[in-house]
């Protein structure tokens, strides 16, 4: 046993080093994403513009300052926060439901959040003092309701929550929700442009206020989820096992579902339905750090940030001066990944 403990120690050290890989990766990607863009700005000038903005000095080149500081930086930050939120939310769902294909987009939760946002736009709901607040709140509320409905149906239909049940319900729910969105569009003539443009979703207008809203929800939601690491491990082994080792199964479900809804809601409200991020990142991360949620959740947080910053970088630069919708990039990568996972799960490889 002493031998075993020694081995455990070495592994522990290696795992802690592994934990630093993802924050470091996110940091490197952030630097790259801020220094590359549709307009090419030399690295020296980029650093100078950022430094002067941080220290409050006057900018020698106002055009470069506005591109780097006012436009690119907030967008990269929003991409990082949305990527982090969707990924940690996806990882939590995959653990809670013991299903590697669970994610906001496959379950239809993103669709539900989008419906909430469309309702807010169509009925002109506003929160005093917060121009985009009602859209965010409605997206979060509808994300939560969607989760409750989907999980309620799933547990009733098939207590083991098999992949087929989950995916099929997600597809059905998504179609149902999108039909309601179409109905709302038909009946709201004057808001039709706002709604259709909103549905197209974009990080182009990302600003620091949105970054603050994202950061606020992420700080609370992701902390709550990361704090449930042990419990999610037990759920990932099996819900019965979680109950038997003494976990308050109901409480953890509520905590995780509320946190995931808040995260998906705010991410959808800011960036639109960016598909597959919550599916792809936890999978890639799991391949590297294993299924233990105490490592998986923080790693997904940073890995997701890096992934979406990269996807956004591709969207911003590959067709310059044109832009691609970011969802095109994530869906392209995600669809291939989804198929691979599904294939391997089915073939038992």
């Amino acid at each position: 046993m002493a031998h075993a403990r020694q081995r455990r120690g070495e592994r522990g050290l290696a795992r802690w080093a592994g934990q630093l890989v993802f924050p470091a990766l996110a940091l490197v990607v952030m630097v790259v994403a801020v220094s590359l863009g549709s307009v090419s700005v030399p690295l020296g000038q980029t650093v100078e513009a950022l430094w002067r903005a941080a220290t409050g000095q006057p900018q020698p080149d106002r055009m470069i300052a506005s591109i780097i500081v006012s436009t690119r930086l907030p967008r990269v930050i929003c991409a990082a926060l949305i990527g982090a939120g969707l990924s940690v939310g996806g990882a939590a769902m995959q653990g809670l439901l013991k299903n590697p294909l669970a994610d906001g987009s496959t379950l239809g939760v993103s669709g539900g959040a989008a419906l909430g946002a469309v309702v807010a736009i169509a009925f002109g709901l506003t929160l005093p003092g917060l121009p985009f607040g009602s859209v965010m709140v409605m997206a979060m509320v509808f994300a939560f309701l969607s989760l409750v409905i989907i999980m309620g149906l799933a547990y009733r239909l098939d207590n083991s929550l098999s992949t087929n049940t989950i995916i099929l319900l997600g597809v059905i729910f998504s179609m149902f929700v999108s039909s309601i969105v179409s109905l709302l569009i038909t009946f709201s003539d004057d808001k039709i442009h706002s709604i259709t443009f909103w549905l197209m979703g974009s990080l182009a207008g990302a600003n620091l206020n949105q970054a603050l809203a994202l950061a606020g929800v992420l700080a609370v939601g992701a902390t709550a989820i990361v704090a449930c690491g042990r419990e999610l491990n037990a759920f990932a082994v099996g819900e019965d096992n979680a109950r038997q080792v003494g976990i308050d199964v109901r409480r953890i479900k509520v905590v995780v579902l509320v946190s995931v809804s808040a995260l998906i809601g705010v991410c959808v409200a800011v960036g639109g339905s960016i598909a597959f991020v919550g599916l792809v990142t936890p999978h890639m991360v799991r391949l590297l750090v294993g299924p233990n949620h105490r490592r998986l959740l923080p790693a997904s947080l940073f890995g997701g940030a890096a992934f979406l910053m990269l996807a956004d970088l591709v969207a911003r630069t590959v067709l310059s001066p044109r832009e691609l919708p970011i969802g095109v990039v994530t869906s392209f990568i995600g669809a291939i990944f989804f198929l691979t996972i599904f294939w391997r799960a089915r073939k038992g490889v």
Binding site: P100, N241, P291
Partner: peptide, 10 residues
């Protein structure tokens, strides 16, 4: 329990 069906490579 009678049977265990673990979902991930713990």
């Amino acid at each position: 329990a009678q049977r265990h069906n673990v979902g991930y490579a713990f």
